[in-house]
Nucleic acid binder design. Structure first.
Lengths: 283, 283
DNA sequence: GTATCTTTGTGCACGCGTTCACAAAGGCAT
DNA sequence: ATGCCTTTGTGAACGCGTGCACAAAGATAC
């Protein structure tokens, strides 16, 4: 293949696949650790182990950035740190605002990983007037009325939403209207945004639910013989009219509308829309 | 296709694809909201919109669980809430422990999404003796010396790690040795665990870095003409010996080892291994 | 009972991401 | 200078996930 050319898998515009982009920070972290130990070079094998991925994948990922390795030797740590940082846009300094200074918002403000590595907390914003002026992580909280001017004055393009679910969409719209084009959302809601705005979602309870699924699967398999496919998802006997209907489950309705409310035991949290109180904005 | 049979895409054991499992909590959340508004049924189209996915995908996802819809009508909300809850293992109550009660750990302890929906915070654990006994979110923090007995006494199988990066692997090993088989890791480290243990990772700084990448891409495309492929990733002129070498980047070394340390400007955070101080355990 | 209309369930095709396996590249020893 | 040995870079195959499009199913109206 042509030696020095950049690749363009499909989209043309910067051919780096999403999956690769998502791993670059992992590599960067591992490389930074090596750099601090003054390790001059790494092989793809070593680095892959440190980053918790497969070495072939790592090499292919790097191949999208260009040819930065030396055959028979490996990759130069410092050089690679620089290249990945640049590719991720970390050679510049990104001002971010955090909206919703509750427990989570405060934790984020104190999070060291933001300050290092190119991100700077430009402002902490909360809707509670009582919070205004109070210092969190060394920064005075500002009232949400000033959101627009803060964004404009600091040239903020990345916003973090750590409000309760109910407030998230509204905050999101204000952020976008003020010029923010990337949002990291911690509120358990689906945000709708115009084209051109990126949203990434971090949802604590979803992660736990996924773990619970696997935990249950493990428990089920351990308890039953290895061939009981149907412990958890019982199969209908090849005959039965409509599917299975366990004894203690809400009866499968027949279009008749208005099923009795609150029958299932799980999934009936009394609050807004599930785990909504991730962060404050108490007033 | 055979009408009533469960599917087994590939793996046989519980044929539900990972991607589907990861979306089930989204559906559940949307369904819970509908349930609270006493909406009896939803069409795949409506529910898909509420969950932020495509309706075909949603229908396919549900088809892995069985046939729970009624053609011409839609899905019964209550029934579906129950089925998904059961599939995710949320009809039982999962005790979890949170290790590392710093800013983040405290935020997690206060997080409403844990308590609702089948999860119960069985204990808060920290290595700082000064924290012991102090109540956080209404629960007294316990010292890490008691980790093993807490796990055993409460039958905990899910652990949350919110310690600094440096302590995470050690805590992880103690959790696993004590019987935990699912771990939600907030520390910015790659955990190595034996087979049979599931780890999910939530990394705040990685999410930001991914956003920064897209932000930079957007900025670059807006600034340059639509055909400058190389604004950010300059290409080597077809002639040059070794690849490009910008003016202010670490020189590409030639196997000669010991590159000058700390040349790249980004990616040289002075702390442990990048943003390590997510949570406390200060002593 | 029959026709019509809505919505599900899914076969099928496509594209992305992962992995294997190997040829090319380059250092290093002699 | 030559050959060996290590490690990269990548072609090619495979598998999973997504989305289209439609036939089957069932409710509803007449």
């Amino acid at each position: 293949m042509a030696t020095g050319r950049p690749h363009r898998p499909t989209t043309r515009g910067r051919g780096i696949p999403e999956a690769t982009v998502a791993r670059l920070p992992l590599y960067l972290r591992a490389l930074t650790a090596l750099s601090e130990r003054s390790v001059p070079t790494v092989s793809s094998e070593e680095l892959a182990t440190a980053a918790g991925v497969n070495s072939a994948k790592l090499r292919k990922d790097f191949s999208y950035l260009g040819s930065y390795g030396t055959r028979g030797v490996g990759y130069d740590v410092e050089y690679l740190v620089y290249q990945i940082s640049r590719e991720l846009g970390l050679t510049q300094d990104w001002p971010v605002v955090i909206v919703g200074i509750g427990n989570l918002g405060a934790a984020l403000a104190n999070y060291g990983g933001f300050a290092s590595r190119g991100f700077r907390v430009a402002a902490l914003i909360d809707a509670d007037a009582a919070m205004a002026g109070r210092p969190v992580a060394g920064i005075a909280v500002q009232h949400i009325d000033e959101l627009e001017s803060i964004i404009a004055d600091n040239g903020v393009s990345i916003g973090v939403i750590a409000t309760p679910a109910g407030a998230a969409q509204q905050v999101c719209e204000r952020l976008v209207a003020a010029g923010v084009t990337s949002i990291l959302n911690f509120a358990p809601t689906v945000l709708s945004v115009p084209d051109g705005v990126d949203v990434r979602k971090v949802d604590l309870s979803i992660e736990l639910q996924i773990l619970a699924f696997h935990e249950q699967r493990k428990a089920g398999e351990a308890a039953a013989g290895p061939d009981i496919t149907d412990m958890v998802t019982p199969v209908v006997p090849p005959v039965a009219a409509t599917r299975r209907r366990a004894d203690d489950v809400p009866a499968r309705p027949v279009v008749d509308g208005a099923a009795p409310h609150g029958v299932g035991d799980a999934g009936s949290g009394p609050d807004g829309s599930d785990g909504g109180r991730s962060a404050a904005m108490p007033a």
